[in-house]
């Protein structure tokens, strides 16, 4: 009976002392030399407002240079309740996920820690998660064991309910900005509207620059066609129509076109080739009207309708289309 009691006392004493032995070990180990371990953490955006049962997840990525290696048994133990100066602080390590990726010169450890809050306070209160100490061992010298400290993460808890009159201003956390309404939908519409605006602006610049709604519209012959339509069907109108048509030809070619360089123009603008005969007739008409009243041209007596038709067909050629068939009336 005495033996049983002694072994019970011994077991109880050991179980009470063991954690302290581990802690003592970590504290007594030397710190790892700078440059051996590099660390990044992915902490939660929310740092405040935690209450009973909430889980705070933290991801730590450690890169440990060779020849040091992580002693995986030194990783935090699930279920371990955090203490501060020996007193429980109400935070429990609820889960840990550990993956590693070994390279020739270093090993990357991804450690995901999930802490669960087990505290309820009547006022907002800070809680420190961590620090966690991990141990590294030099694979070339087994006696060389060092520690590395994963820094703490400060969060704060909030009461589930407020008792009595509380001045909210006094209890406002500097960590928590005023909650904002989601404007994601409005931002999306703003982007769409901005896109439409920019496209409209480009279209406007194009229209003003080209003086045309669509590419190939608003060309020389299109303008001439519009102008000729307004001219009267008399000698003066015909003279003006011929002059404007000549101008359209000259502007299209980039040089003054006459009978003697008409073929040069057709070579440079083959889309006008289907109208070769009519263009020659037009130059014959121009010759008769402007230079030689007795000259023949083969246009016929309905000069103005013929001119309108001719310029319309030239407009088709200008747009890269096959000229529309001759019409009796324009």
């Amino acid at each position: 009976m005495k033996n049983i009691l002694q072994s019970l006392i011994l077991t109880l004493s050991f179980s009470l002392v063991a954690p302290y032995c581990l802690a003592i070990d970590s504290q007594t180990l030397p710190d790892v030399k700078p440059g051996i371990v590099s660390m990044t953490t992915k902490d939660p955006d929310k740092r405040v407002g935690y209450s009973m049962g909430d889980i705070v997840e933290r991801e730590v990525v450690l890169t440990i240079q060779a020849p040091y290696k992580l002693i995986e048994t030194s990783l935090p133990i699930v279920g371990y309740e955090k203490r501060y100066r020996g007193k429980l602080i109400g935070v429990n390590l609820q889960a840990i996920e550990h993956t590693k990726q070994a390279q020739k010169d270093y090993t990357t450890h991804k450690i995901k820690l999930s802490y669960q809050i087990f505290v309820s306070t009547v006022v907002a209160k800070n809680i420190a998660l961590g620090p966690e100490y991990i141990h590294l061992i030099n694979t070339q010298n087994k006696k060389d064991i060092v520690k590395y400290r994963i820094p703490i993460l400060n969060v704060s808890t909030s009461p589930l309910a407020i008792f009595g009159q509380v001045k909210v201003e006094n209890n406002m956390s500097p960590f928590l900005p005023p909650p904002l309404l989601s404007a994601e939908k409005e931002y999306r519409w703003l982007k769409v509207a901005s896109g439409i605006f920019v496209l409209s602006l480009l279209a406007l610049i194009y229209i003003l620059g080209q003086r045309a709604w669509l590419p190939r519209m608003g060309g020389r012959f299109a303008t001439t066609f519009s102008a000729i339509k307004k001219l009267p069907d008399n000698d003066d109108g015909i003279k003006q129509a011929i002059s404007k048509s000549h101008l359209a030809f000259n502007q299209t070619a980039g040089f003054a076109i006459f009978n003697d360089n008409l073929n040069d123009f057709l070579r440079q603008h083959p889309n006008f080739m289907p109208l070769k005969t009519e263009i020659e007739q037009f130059f014959g008409l121009s010759r008769q009207v402007y230079f030689e009243p007795g000259a023949t041209h083969g246009v016929g007596n309905a000069t103005m309708p013929w001119l309108l038709n001719f310029v319309r067909r030239c407009r088709d050629c200008e747009r890269g289309l096959l000229p529309s068939p001759l019409k009796a009336k324009v």
């Binding site: 006459f258 009978n259 003697d260 010759r287 230079f291 030689e292 009243p293 007795g294 000259a295």
Partner: peptide, 12 residues
């Protein structure tokens, strides 16, 4: 064979 001068005649 023309009875009037054209620009082409001047060019020539």
């Amino acid at each position: 064979g023309r009875a009037a001068v054209l620009p082409d005649d001047i060019h020539a």
